[in-house]
């Protein structure tokens, strides 16, 4: 039996970003197309990779993941900020739903936005170059699990942030650099050894390479470990977000 309260919460979250598709879906596609043009036509041919794969194809999973992370985080964090700012978060907090259901509704909204973005970006890239996806289900798994993790982080950041500014800081100063340093544009054998070591400490590196393996079959790292790290991230932050909602941390007085 589907819980109608929960269903309504999810419905509202999804509707919100679908109506705003010009802000929530189009930018990712346009950015991906620009990258394809710049790296494909202009720069790509000058960069050589060891395993003989075209550079433009190599960066597609990274670009996808970068967008998935940004979009899923933005969805839940901005939705919560808006609800706090206009105070209708109170309507959620007094509804007959659990903290887990509340946080999951925001997270599912974020997952859908992340996955839709991811799939559309991959399709857009396919217009510029040709590649075949090695493992469909595993690719989808990474899109979902990573969206879930960053949707949950968005919930947490949305709850603790006082201003829109402090939400934006996360994207600019944390996720963007970590994605860039997480191997969107390079493979680990291009790096000096000390840098390679640091890269391995970056969870985003494992997520990006997980999708790269799933899509292209390139495995510079252990795929099992990628799966575990991504799952752990998703589970831990989902639990944290749910606890914050149940306890009313920072949102109930």
């Amino acid at each position: 039996m589907i819980n109608k309260s929960f269903y309504t919460l999810v419905y509202r979250e999804v509707w919100r970003f679908l109506v705003l598709y010009k802000q929530t879906i189009m930018p990712g596609i346009i950015t991906a197309a620009l990258y394809m043009v710049i790296f494909g036509e202009a720069l790509g041919s000058r960069i050589k990779l060891e395993n003989n794969i075209d550079y433009i194809i190599f960066i597609i999973p990274g670009l996808t993941m970068m967008s998935v992370i940004g979009q899923s985080f933005a969805n839940s964090s901005s939705s919560i900020m808006q609800a706090k700012y206009l105070k209708f978060i109170d309507d959620y907090l007094i509804a007959p739903v659990s903290g887990f259901e509340l946080s999951m509704s925001f997270i599912i909204g974020a997952i859908l936005r992340g996955v839709i973005n991811g799939i559309l970006i991959i399709l857009t890239c396919a217009l510029f170059t040709s590649f075949t996806i090695e493992h469909y289900f595993l690719s989808l798994f990474f899109l979902i699990v990573v969206s879930c993790a960053f949707g949950a982080i968005g919930v947490i950041v949305g709850i603790v942030s006082k201003t829109w500014d402090s939400v934006g800081v996360w994207g600019t100063f944390v996720f963007m650099p970590l994605s860039m340093l997480g191997g969107v544009f390079w493979s680990i054998d291009m790096l000096p050894e000390s840098w390679a070591y640091i890269a391995l400490m970056n969870p985003l590196y494992w997520m990006i390479n997980g999708l790269r393996y799933s899509m292209l079959g390139i495995s510079e790292i252990s795929i099992t470990f990628s799966i575990i790290i991504s799952l752990l991230f998703a589970i831990i932050f989902t639990i944290l977000a749910s606890i914050m909602f149940s306890k009313g941390y920072k949102i109930k007085s």
Binding site: T8, F88, D91
Partner: peptide, 22 residues
């Protein structure tokens, strides 16, 4: 404390939904 994103009717329909109405 009204959301400005949806219409009044939509908001109230959601409100019913939170409390278990289809």
């Amino acid at each position: 404390n009204l959301d400005v994103f949806f219409t009044i009717r939509e908001l109230l329909i959601f409100q019913g939904g939170y409390y278990g109405l289809s």
